[in-house]
């Protein structure tokens, strides 16, 4: 017997039953079809949009991410430039080809030298958008795609994420819901999920030597978030 059949056989033997018949399979199949959320912590469930934004910022800062809150899309390039200057970082950026980043007036800051594309080895700073942000734990959710290279989230020393206030949700479950809704639009078979979904909570770290936390183990040493609030944010 081949390995696959034998393993499945062994499972059924241990469970003292044969393969699930149609009726018995209805339970697990229904569980998958409904993918119902489980218990959601009350930490976020009573908060309004403002409260979610505040909680997200507090939780992200707790894990050593830094956040600049700006009032309008027009302020984003300035906030990025100021962050780079204040940390003595070069003004060379690798930015995701993501069109949602095009709404920010980068030309206002001619000193920023911007390349669009995936990350190369020696890139120092990357700029990406995000799919959502989870206030519950200060976590960013980024998804891969043609114009959203995963390498930008991982390789450069500094990762800057431009986030809109309406992307901040309470629990992970709301983010899954939004992702399912978006993916339903382009549902090729097998593409119910993007290839990569990165949940990122603070900059890279390790405690592997004597349990002392060091930032920047393999991923970015710095994670900076520009949070766009204000009435214009939604259209951005």
């Amino acid at each position: 017997m081949d390995a696959r059949s034998q393993i499945l056989d062994s499972i059924r033997k241990s469970l003292k039953r044969g393969p699930l018949g149609e009726a018995a399979a209805a339970g697990p199949a229904g569980r998958i079809a409904s993918h119902a959320p489980g218990l959601i912590p009350a930490r976020t469930t009573t908060l309004d949009a403002k409260g979610l934004g505040d909680l997200f910022v507090r939780m992200a800062e707790e894990v050593q991410a830094t956040v600049t809150r700006v009032a309008a899309p027009a302020d984003v390039p300035g906030a990025v430039a100021e962050y780079l200057t204040s940390h003595n970082l070069p003004a060379d950026l690798t930015m995701a080809p993501d069109p949602t980043l095009d709404v920010y007036p980068w030309d206002d800051r001619p000193l920023l030298r911007i390349r669009r594309g995936r990350a190369q080895d020696l890139d120092q700073v990357s700029v990406t958008g995000a799919f959502a942000a989870i206030a519950e734990t200060g976590t960013l959710m980024l998804i891969s795609g043609n114009d959203r290279p995963t390498t930008l989230n991982l390789m450069p020393d500094t990762h800057i994420v431009v986030l809109r206030a309406d992307q901040v949700v309470g629990p992970y479950e709301t983010a899954w819901q939004r992702l399912r809704a978006e993916q339903a639009g382009n549902a090729q078979p097998g593409n119910t999920m993007p290839r990569t979904v990165n949940f990122i909570t603070g900059p890279s770290r390790t405690g592997d030597i004597e349990q002392r936390i060091q930032l920047g183990a393999h991923g970015p040493r710095r994670l900076h978030i520009v949070l766009v609030e204000g009435p214009d944010a939604k259209t951005a």
């Binding site: 080809p97 976590t139 795609g145 999920m193 909570t201």
Partner: peptide, 21 residues
């Protein structure tokens, strides 16, 4: 920790047009 730094869901190989993976 409230959540680990990187939690990553991977589904299949690089898709057509993907710049990496």
């Amino acid at each position: 920790q409230e959540f680990s730094t990187y939690t990553t869901f991977s589904t299949g190989p690089r898709r057509p047009g993907d710049p990496d993976g």
